[in-house]
Computed example of a mutant assay.
Amino acid sequence: MVEDDLGVTRWRELGPDSLTPTLRAALGVFAENGYHGASIRSIAEAAGLSVPGLYHHYSSKQTILTALVESTMDEMIAYTSAAARDAGDDPVARFDNVVECLARFHMARRDHSFVASSEMRSMEPDARAHHVAQRDEQQQMVEDAIRVGVASGDFTCEHPGDAARAIASLCVSIASWYRPDGPLSADEVAARHLGYARAIVGAPTGRT
C-alpha cells in the first residue's frame, strides 16, 4: 500500500507515537490530573526541565494542550486513511478496516484519546474549532464508508450520519475502559466492536 504523510504502512501495528518528550510528559500529567489540575511546574518536572526551559519550547499550558491534541488527531486521521486505502474497492472491507482501525487506535493510544476527547472543553476557541474540524474529518471517513456500502447494496442503513456518530462514539469509549492486562485481548475487543458496528449499518455478518 502507498505510504502516507506520516509514514503509515501497517495500520494495524501502532508503534511508538511521534510526540516529543515534553509532550509525552504533558500527556501523562493531563491524563492523571486533567488540564486544570496540571501546572506548568508539574509538566516541567515530568519532562525533566526547568520552568524556563519548558517555556523555551512552549509558550503556555494551552499551547502544550493544543500541540498534543493536534498531534493525536493527525495520527488518527493518517492511520484511518491508510486503513481505508488498504481495502481497495471493496465497500465492506473499507468499512471493516476503518472501524477496526479506530478501535485499535483507541486501545493503543488510550491516554492520547482520553485527553483529546475530555479536554476539548479546556481549549481556547481557535484551537477548539480546529480540533472539531479534525474530529469531523475523522467521522466523515466513517460516514463515507457507510454511504459507499449503502450505494453498493451491502448495507441497509437508512441514516448513515447517525450511524457514523454512533460508531465513532463506540470506538472512542474504548479508551476509557480498555486495559492491556484485562480479560479481552486487543484482537478480541476489535472483533467485538466491529460486530457491533456491522449490526448498526446492516452489514453482512458472515465475513471476517
Rank of each mutant, 00 (worst) to 15 (best):
E143C: 13
S50A: 00
S71L: 07
M73F: 11
Y79C: 02
R94P: 08
E75P: 04
V98H: 04
S152D: 14
M73I: 10
R109F: 00
V51C: 03
H57R: 10
D136G: 13
L54R: 00
E70W: 09
S113W: 03
I77P: 01
S118T: 15
L68P: 01
D111W: 06
F114K: 15
A93Q: 11
A87M: 08
D89F: 06
S60M: 08
S122T: 09
S50R: 07
A44F: 00
I146Y: 02
F30Q: 01
S117H: 12
S81T: 15
N97Q: 12
M120A: 12
H57E: 09
A108I: 02
F155D: 14
E124I: 13
V132R: 05
M141G: 06
R104I: 02
H36V: 12
T72D: 11
A93T: 12
A47R: 02
H106M: 03
V29A: 09
E158G: 15
A103Q: 02
I64Y: 01
S39T: 15
A46M: 06
H159I: 14
R41V: 13
Q140V: 11
E124W: 12
H159P: 10
S42D: 10
G53H: 01
S50C: 00
S113I: 07
S60H: 08
Y58W: 07
L54T: 00
A38F: 03
R147E: 14
P160C: 11
G37Q: 05
A78V: 05
S81P: 09
V69S: 07
H36F: 12
E143L: 12
R135H: 11
S113K: 00
A82P: 02
R24W: 09
V92K: 13
E143T: 15
V115Y: 05
R135Q: 14
P52V: 04
A25Y: 04
E158V: 15
H36E: 15
H130C: 15
H112A: 05
S117G: 11
A116K: 04
Y58T: 03
P125L: 08
A129F: 04
A127F: 03
A127R: 05
S122F: 07
